[in-house]
Design a protein around this nucleic acid. Structure first.
Length: 422
RNA sequence: GUGGAUGUAGCUCAAUGGCAGAGCGCCGCACUGUGGAUGCGGUGGUUGAGGGUUCGAUCCCCUUCAUCCACCCCA
């Protein structure tokens, strides 16, 4: 590069208007779905104490993948790698004043210190949505229904994405029945979670490393392919029953191998995947019963999920479900014929703004050809020309840049005309 | 943290141990009251950075930085 532009920080993204368009579009869909279920928006700080995550998030996330540093006063701080601990902290801090069940959602930046690759950056955005204070399977169902409604809202179909649901209590009980000790179950959960990521041989070897005997390995193998297993869980039976009412059950299926990595999940867990399996999980979530208590509050259970902006963005882009971003927010471009008409042009343009129309004004008198080219390039839909003739007759030329049709009309009719065109 | 690849014009990419190229874009003109399309003309480079080998390096070697991809983990 000839120019030596100072580079951006590794793993961060610059949101040029086109990228910002996608982010805002997703944000609007998330808001729309969240609010339609009665969830209120909140936000926490990007910086938290290291203490908040220690032993509450997964070890890998805290120890290896968090930005941890000391501030000038020597306090150990973390750039938040996830939101749920912040939520638990905020709820614990004001627990007596809050009305439960509470329904909250948020969309903001998160940081993980990892090697960037496709669909993964160090700074990313996440939609978090949670309900606290209702421990019922129907609450779990509501969150799954919200997730499905979102997928539908962004134009994804059930044959393209699936929400896979499981329940840790169910799995825990089954492992107990196989004679697997409680302290070994987290490792076995991890084993199950990785079934799809390893070859059958490696998986078997890993299972033996954990000290499982042949019978237990066979039991687990049978367990995670048992599609009817959910019927043994009252919670899942009630949850699936509730889900039917939302009309989104084609987006949801039972999947006994879904466990999830985060240690704080205690009951229902779920993930959404593209059905071709090309990408990582689109989102993940579940029920956590101890988190608020763990940060010093009175025990109150919660259920929620988090959607990163990257995978869903890649998927939507690939399936061509995204609108075109990057056009000017102003559909109307007001040209400037010459210096003598500057004042008249600016005045008229501003009158349009006062009527609620978004208008870009040309400020320097360049050739009209250049002005039209500029208007076309920024994505304006209408160009207005106020030349000497129009100024004398109190008219204005209105050109539709898409059709190329142009009409000269009295200025008094301009607003009405623009409203029909836009 | 581990492994693999790639850095050449604004963008996408060629090329050869011996003058650095194309397409697109951009600018101008045809068209001084009208964009997209077309034609013609023009602008384009410390070949990521540093060092080595060589008469000569964009090419070969070393170092470094950056980016991308996979693993790990996860949104």
């Amino acid at each position: 590069m000839a120019r030596n532009v100072i580079r951006s920080v590794k793993g961060t993204r610059d949101y040029y208007p086109e990228e910002m368009g996608l982010r805002v579009w997703l944000y609007q869909k998330m808001r729309q779905v969240s609010e339609s279920f009665g969830y209120s928006e909140y936000e926490g700080p990007i910086l938290e104490t290291f203490e908040l995550y220690a032993a509450k998030s997964s070890e890998e996330i805290v120890e290896k993948q968090s930005y941890v540093f000391e501030d000038r006063g020597g306090e150990k701080l973390t750039l938040r790698p996830e939101l749920t601990p912040t939520l638990a902290r905020m709820v614990a801090a004001r627990q007596p004043q809050l009305t439960f069940p509470l329904r909250w959602w948020s969309f903001g930046p998160f940081w993980r210190y990892e090697r960037p690759q496709k669909g993964r950056t160090r700074e990313f955005f996440q939609w978090n949505i949670d309900m606290l204070g209702d421990d019922s399977p129907e609450a779990d169902a509501e969150l799954v229904a919200i997730a499905a409604t979102f997928l539908k809202a962004v134009g994804l179909k059930p044959d393209e994405v699936q929400i896979l649901v499981n329940n840790r209590k169910l799995m825990d009980a089954r492992l107990a029945a196989f004679g697997i000790a409680p302290d070994k179950r987290p490792e076995v959960f991890n084993l199950i979670d990785r079934r799809d990521k390893m070859s059958a041989e490696d998986w078997q070897a890993y299972a033996r490393e954990l000290g499982l005997n042949g019978q237990q390995i066979a039991d687990i193998t049978a367990l995670i392919s048992d599609q009817d297993l959910w019927q043994q869980s009252d919670e899942l039976v009630r949850m699936f029953a509730a889900l039917k009412a939302y009309g989104i059950d084609e987006y949801v299926s039972f999947a006994p191998h879904i466990i999830r990595g985060l240690v704080y999940y205690t009951g229902t867990v779920f993930e959404a995947w593209d059905t071709r399996g090309e990408y990582r999980a689109i989102f993940g979530g579940g029920r956590y019963d101890n988190l608020v208590g763990d940060v010093g509050g009175d025990p109150v259970g919660g259920v929620g999920f988090a959607v990163g902006d990257l995978i869903i963005g890649l998927l939507l882009q690939e399936l061509e479900r995204l609108p075109v971003f990057g056009a000017t927010p102003a559909p109307v471009f007001f040209t400037l014929f010459d210096q003598a008409l500057l004042s008249a042009s600016l005045t008229l343009a501003n009158r349009l703004r006062q009527e609620g129309l978004a208008v870009t004004s040309q400020l320097q008198p360049e050739k009209l050809g250049k002005q039209f080219k500029y208007a076309d390039r920024i994505g304006a839909r209408i160009a207005l020309v106020l030349g000497p003739d129009e100024d004398r007759d109190a008219t204005i030329a209105v050109k539709d840049l898409k059709t190329g049709e142009q009409e000269t009309i009295p200025q008094a009719q301009l607003i009405e005309k623009l409203r029909t065109l836009i």
